[in-house]
Design a protein around this nucleic acid. Structure first.
Length: 907
RNA sequence: GGGGCCUUAGCUCAGCUGGCUAGAGCGCUACGUUGACAUCGUAGAGGUCACUGGUUCGAGUCCAGUAGGCCCCACCA
């Protein structure tokens, strides 16, 4: 029969069988309803009045402008797994959600909207613009919150926060004032990173450096007192020469010793430039002479400070040449100006040469525009004192990173911390709480918690600083501002400090390190003890997922296609601690199919078992007379519980997912369910059936629980149908199974191992017979599984694998043949189907290859056993294992040689 | 210029304290209408664990170096 036809026949048969539950699990049937129910019942709500052993996570607040992408999907699934697991363990768990106002990003979105209408924010004016942004936020913002629910996140939504909320705004202002009072805040004129597109200052962290193939231009400047002599300088940004105010050489550079103290003439501008000596200059680089542009280069600014040089800002806010430059260039864009300057220099024969030069250039992290280092009056936070306790906490081991290596990255950054530029020339954000007296004679500056009416000094009118604060200036307070600080709330008392902070490595500096600093400064305590850093979601060729590349995968689409559980399982299993996760956006199937198939597998496993079970089976299986298979699965379950719990403790979530999958599919479905099928058919009241049923209920409920943090929906859906389930019970509330070492049953485990080997051997009998399709062999068993271990002990090796088999004969399949359960019954027959005609030539080759392989392994095992040092130093059990290995290898080899001989010579 | 990471099956990756006849998922081959599941089952092919040295009774695992890839930080014009 052709494959497609065969499949059709199968499906027809399948649909003819009417069953209560569909044989395909359809996540869309239940996910949303379950979520709504959990939420309505308040299962995610944290009670601040009884938080005795709290487990707390604050969400890394996504930008209000965001829609969910796979990065969020991964980040939040990880948090949800941790939170659900701890909640099931009985910890008083809070996962606090919220969003970030995201100054630049949000302002940009609304500005783009305005641009489409042909307007700018300047047309609207400040108040109307801010009003407009709020409207946008109310209408479109926070979509992401709803999307988090779709993927199953068990946040306490009653505590949702927004960084521009009244409470959080109060926290921001309190912090600003406190820092100012402690002189950890200052206003000053320094070189900052300026984004000419966003027309605002950026912090160092917001300027992303990338390598560029640029040019290095060598220009010559004539000396003032010796116009026929020139000095060569090199620059990558020739237009900045318009702002040069000096030249510098190294103090010990003998070549130029005679130049120091003299003056050069700045071409195109005709300004006189003093030539100074400064340690900063590297005599090895270029000509060894540097042009000094204090307003547009941080080093030059430093030099200027040391030599009392003027700083001339030759740019406007949008990076055009300002009025400080000669008229010819004014109004030109910086790149346009670069061309004109070069052309003019060339015309004057002052452009010596141009060479290729690779160097890195800063880009705005929001709009990717090349940032301009620029002298500007801004507010800064003095970071060094704030960093000290955070550094100590890490070194003392109170603050732990998973994986550990990120601790070193954190340490390095904290050690070399630089002051933080916090003012932004934007309208959307927390307005800086500083007022300047408009009375020039007074000039008072007021920094206040509450808006002042008039100048406390002179009673004059006040004007508030027009700038807003860096978005991260509210984010760094997140772990306590969300709990009500600066009020001493019950929440703050109950839930601070938090437990685990879970994020991608990108915002280690932006956010994580600064939260530690704020935690110590304002709460006197660490904001969290564990930092879990996960990888980035990339596409199949390693690129970061992004809208602009078009390689993004929409998690909501994935949920619709495969279900939230499938997505969560795939993400968790794919993301080993600290490694990136690759997903193929062109073939969603291959990425998410395993997760969906797993959900379907467990759905069908439980669907199969349910009709055999009744409420009376919801008893502790140890009250029943357990058979080998029952003891075995209970023991395996105990082992799985132990391993999975340990993996979660160590934040090895991928391992926990993998272990659960292996237990459910490999142990439970493949073996236990198969072994128990026959027994379930038995009469209620029969010891064997009751033991099987009780074990089945217990173990199924158990692994549904273990799987619930990763796949909350199917597991809950199924757990509710198990005997003994009550309407108010929910896996959400646990309890998490506890690991009981007495449940390990090594006797049962080793007997089952033997049984599994035995079954494999029986199956292998197939290769010893050449039969027609549709026939097979029938194996007559003399012992059942519980006898097997005795049989094995009695038999010497050699016959071991066939222990329990009295005879094997060729036969047609029985009309109504027993399943694999027959293996366990003494005196029954097991029909082993054979899979068609065996290709004898192929079989010969296979056997020969196999024998060769075994010879090789045997040689190395023997060599080891012949090694005196090995015998002397290796642990006893290792040596013993090695001996066994040698024996069984020899045994296998001999058997295969025998088989090979039986097949006759090649031909 | 500093710091960190990676290189294991055709693909994506596990492999924690050295004991491994190196695993998983996908893909591939063969067979299968077995009353849970074809979103499945059974069997199988496929790997000098990048390379070179070292430590060790024993190295995918530890150390050093080489080659290739990635990331972060940094003011060399």
């Amino acid at each position: 029969m052709e494959p497609y036809r065969r499949r059709q026949v199968f499906l027809e048969r399948a649909s003819a069988l009417s069953t209560e539950l569909s044989s395909r699990y359809d996540p869309s049937d239940s996910e949303q309803a379950l979520y709504r129910e959990w939420e309505e019942r308040g299962l995610f709500h944290a009670d601040e009045t009884r938080a005795r052993s709290p487990y707390v996570i604050v969400i890394p607040p996504p930008n209000v402008t965001n829609v969910l992408h796979m990065g969020h999907g991964l980040n939040n699934t990880i948090q949800d797994v941790l939170v659900r697991w701890r909640r099931m363990q009985g910890r008083d768990t809070l996962w606090l959600p919220g969003t970030d106002h995201a100054g630049i990003a949000t302002q940009n979105v609304v500005e783009r909207e305005l641009a489409a209408e042909g307007a700018t924010r300047l047309d609207l004016g400040r108040d109307a613009f801010v009003e407009r942004v709020w409207e946008w936020v109310h209408e479109y913002g926070g979509q992401i919150v709803e999307q988090l629910k779709v993927i199953g996140c068990s946040c306490d939504w009653s505590r949702t926060r927004f960084t521009l909320d009244e409470g959080l705004s109060r926290a921001v202002r309190e912090v600003f004032v406190r820092l100012y009072e402690k002189e950890l805040l200052y206003r000053g004129r320094y070189i900052i990173n300026w984004c000419p597109r966003c027309t605002t200052a950026l912090s160092n962290e917001e300027s992303e450096h990338r390598e560029h193939d640029g040019k290095l231009y060598h220009i010559r400047y004539p000396l003032a007192d010796e116009p026929q002599r020139f000095v060569d300088v090199a620059t990558t940004r020739p237009e900045t020469m318009l702002g040069d105010t000096a030249l510098a050489v190294h103090p010990e550079d003998e070549r130029y010793a005679d130049l120091v103290g003299r003056k050069a003439v700045l071409p195109l501008v005709d300004r006189l430039l003093p030539i100074v000596a400064d340690e900063f200059v590297d005599p090895e680089f270029g000509s060894g002479i540097v042009k000094v542009t204090p307003a547009h280069d941080p080093n030059d600014f430093e030099i200027a400070g040391r030599h009392d040089l003027e700083a001339i800002d030759i740019l406007t806010d949008d990076a055009r040449i300002s009025d400080a430059a000669p008229e010819a260039y004014r109004g030109q864009d910086r790149l346009e100006a670069r061309e004109s300057v070069l052309a003019d220099l060339d015309r004057a024969d002052l452009l010596v040469r141009i060479e290729d030069h690779r160097h890195s250039i800063g880009h705005c992290y929001r709009c990717d525009t090349v940032v301009e280092p620029r002298l500007s009056l801004q507010w800064f936070v003095r970071m060094e004192p704030l960093a000290r306790p955070g550094l100590k906490a890490y070194r003392d081991g109170q603050l732990r990173f998973y994986p550990e290596r990120f601790g070193r990255v954190y340490e390095h950054w904290m050690e070399n911390i630089r002051d933080w530029c916090i003012s932004r020339q934007l309208w959307w954000g927390h307005r800086i709480p500083v007022w300047y007296c408009q009375n020039e004679a007074c000039g008072e500056m007021v920094v206040a918690r509450d808006d002042p009416d008039r100048c406390p000094e002179c009673g004059g009118a006040l004007e508030q600083d027009p700038d807003v604060l860096d978005t991260w200036f509210s984010s760094w307070l997140w772990p306590f501002s969300t709990l009500g600080w600066p009020e001493e709330t019950a929440d703050l008392k109950a839930f601070y400090p938090t437990s685990t902070l879970c994020t991608a490595s990108e915002i280690l500096f932006f956010w994580v390190a600064r939260m530690v600093m704020a935690g110590y400064e304002f709460m006197g305590e660490l904001p969290f003890t564990d930092v879990l850093i996960h990888g980035t979601v990339r596409d199949h060729i390693g690129r970061r997922m992004s809208k602009s590349l078009g390689n993004g995968i929409d998690p909501i689409e994935v949920v619709q296609l495969f279900g939230a559980d499938a997505m969560r399982f795939t993400l968790i299993r794919g993301a080993a601690v600290g490694t990136d996760l690759q997903l193929n956006y062109e073939d969603l199937e291959s990425a998410f199919r395993p997760g969906r198939n797993f959900a379907n597998k467990i759905w069908n496993a439980v669907r199969f078992a349910l009709p055999y079970l009744q409420d009376a089976d919801a008893v502790d299986p140890r009250e029943r007379e357990l058979e080998l298979a029952d003891r075995w699965i209970l023991s395996r379950f105990a082992a799985a519980t132990d391993q999975i719990t340990a993996a979660l403790e160590a934040y090895r979530l991928h391992e926990a997912a993998e272990l659960t999958h292996a237990f459910v599919w490999g142990d439970f479905c493949d073996w236990y369910l198969e072994l128990v099928k026959g027994r379930l058919e038995g009469e209620r009241g029969s010891g064997s059936r009751d033991a099987a049923a009780a074990t089945l209920v217990y173990v199924t409920r158990g692994w549904l629980t273990l799987l619930h943090p990763v796949m909350p929906f199917v597991t809950e859906e199924l757990a509710r149908r198990l005997p003994g389930a009550t309407p108010e019970a929910s896996l959400v509330l646990g309890p998490w199974p506890s690991w009981d070492p007495t449940q390990r049953d090594t006797e049962a485990e080793s007997a089952m191992e033997a049984l599994q080997e035995f079954v494999a051997t029986v199956r292998n009998l197939r290769s010893e017979y050449h039969v027609d399709p549709g026939t097979g062999v029938t194996v007559h068993l003399q012992s059942d599984a519980s006898d097997l271990e005795h049989a094995l002990a009695a038999e010497e090796r050699g016959v071991r694998r066939l222990a329990g088999i009295t005879s094997v004969e060729r036969s047609a399949p029985p009309v109504d043949g027993p399943g694999a359960s027959a293996v366990l019954r003494a005196g029954t027959e097991l029909f082993v189907p054979l899979s068609g005609v065996i290709d004898v030539d192929r079989e010969r080759t296979r056997l020969e290859t196999e024998v060769n392989r075994l010879e090789g392994l045997l040689a190395s095992a023997s060599a080891r056993l012949g090694n005196e040092a090995f015998l002397a130093k290796a642990p006893k059990d290792v040596v013993e294992r090695e001996r066994q290995k040698e024996r069984s290898l020899a045994e296998q080899r001999d058997r295969l040689i025998e088989k090979r001989r039986a097949l006759g010579p090649t031909g």
